[in-house]
Amino acid sequence: MITSKKKREEYYHALKEKDRSYDGIFYAGIKTTGIFCHPTCRARKPKFENCEFYPTAEEALLAGYRPCKICQPLSFPQAIPEEVQLLVNAVEEQPEKRWKEADFLAIGLNSATARRKFKEVYKMTFVQYARARRMGLAFKEIRRGSKVIEQQLEAGYESSSGFNDAFTKIMGNPAKKVVARQLNASFISTPIGRMLCLSDDDYLYLLEFENRRGLEREIEQLRLKYNFRIIYGQTAVNQLVEEQLGEYFQGVRTEFSLPLFYDGSPFQKEVWKILETIPCGKTLSYRDIALRLGDKNKVRAVGRANGSNKMAIVIPCHRVIGSDGNLTGYAGGIERKQYLLELEKRAALQKHE
């Protein structure tokens, strides 16, 4: 989300004036309607305080906004193909759904063709779109902390089932069953994207970029395994995470001191412990780690354990690279991995000057 007041004022002026030069530059989320638009939308303009601005459509979706039916922001500048509109409508009808090949056939679509056209129009895959919409609804609920029925109506659902399912399948039912423990969810802004933090008063359980591949499954597995309910809120651990991440991105912190909850198999925990020993500014290959574990044939197993890490940056899985030096295998995205490694090299050099 764009937080600079100067930028927000600039974008709001562009929105009011329907300035075509800003189309594709930002998307405007309208708090009062729960939709997002491109700058030239002909709908009635909201007040400044009711607008949020996002550089990408995916961020707007993750914030819980749905595409405006008037301006169809994701189809700019071309008309939206019928197959793509059919998929968008289907996601709105069942936001909790995880699509399989048979689901495309059920609505009369060829999966490969529909996916290709979706990517051409939206510049993101259909899987990314559907996931962002599901996660956005869940994130919206936990951020606001209000009753599901209120959020369901604002999101445009006539019945509670669609919205409620989208939320509860990820975060847990807020009312219908007794749970043993409660986790607090909060969001931390960083220069390379917002992160979701799950913690209680004792431990950090998860720290991931909100658009990470597989994030919702990580949340579900954690919740179901330990019978957690997840709500929005701050904890002392979360505040410590935010403080240390801020220092890290400023280049003044090269190590973290946080109470971590290691949720994994004995082998995964072994791998994660090795990751924590990699110095800031350095890297290891998957083969290096396998050799440290005493078996060069465990390279793939190391890769899987690396991908199962739930503590992005803090347990530095981004410091693991291919044997040929290539930056491979980072669920947060290769661009983020490169940014983090370059940041750490600079911080390590400054530390030793």
Rank of each mutant, 00 (worst) to 15 (best):
K140M: 08
E208F: 01
K123D: 08
A130Y: 02
E141G: 12
R213P: 10
L137A: 06
R194K: 15
L206P: 01
V127D: 12
A132H: 02
A132M: 04
A180M: 09
A155V: 04
S186Q: 06
N164Y: 11
Q152T: 14
K123A: 10
Y157V: 02
E141V: 09
D200P: 00
V148T: 13
K176I: 08
N184V: 05
D202W: 08
I188T: 07
N211G: 10
Y122P: 01
L198G: 01
R212S: 02
F118V: 02
R143I: 07
C197F: 09
I192N: 05
T125V: 03
L153S: 11
M135R: 11
D201H: 09
Q128C: 07
K119Q: 11
M171D: 03
S189Q: 14
D201I: 04
A138P: 02
C197K: 01
K147M: 15
Q152A: 14
S160N: 13
R143M: 09
E120Q: 11
E208H: 10
L207T: 01
L196T: 01
R143V: 05
V121Q: 05
M124C: 05
K140L: 08
N211Y: 08
E158D: 15
Y129R: 00
L137H: 09
K177T: 13
F163S: 03
D201M: 07
Y157K: 05
K177Y: 10
K177L: 12
K169T: 15
A185R: 00
V148C: 12
V121Y: 01
A155C: 13
R212H: 00
P174D: 10
G162V: 02
D202F: 14
N164V: 10
L137V: 05
Y157H: 11
A138K: 05
E150W: 13
K140Y: 08
E120P: 08
